[in-house]
């Protein structure tokens, strides 16, 4: 049973490969976290998501 990686672990591994993008997105939010609205950091998020998608694909 432990040989099967849980989806959340796969997810975590893929996200870990995108620490630069993740940090850039975090910085964008934290820069002014009192006025967060929808898609405030859309560019940063899309960059993060692209990186994640690529990392997830590479893995499997």
């Amino acid at each position: 049973m432990p040989s099967r990686t849980k989806p959340i672990e796969k997810f975590a591994q893929a996200v870990a490969k995108c620490s630069v993008e993740s940090s850039a997105y975090g910085k964008c939010i934290v820069a002014d976290y009192n006025s967060v609205h929808k898609d405030k950091c859309l560019t940063e998020f899309l960059r993060l998501k692209d990186c994640y998608m690529a990392a997830a694909k590479r893995k499997s």
């Binding site: 993008e21 993740s22 940090s23 997105y25 975090g26 939010i29 934290v30 998020f45 998501k49």
Partner: peptide, 15 residues
């Protein structure tokens, strides 16, 4: 949602 989890990881780490 996965998008929220993805976003959360970055924010948690930064904050």
């Amino acid at each position: 949602q996965r998008d929220v989890l993805l976003a959360n990881e970055g924010i948690y780490r930064e904050l």
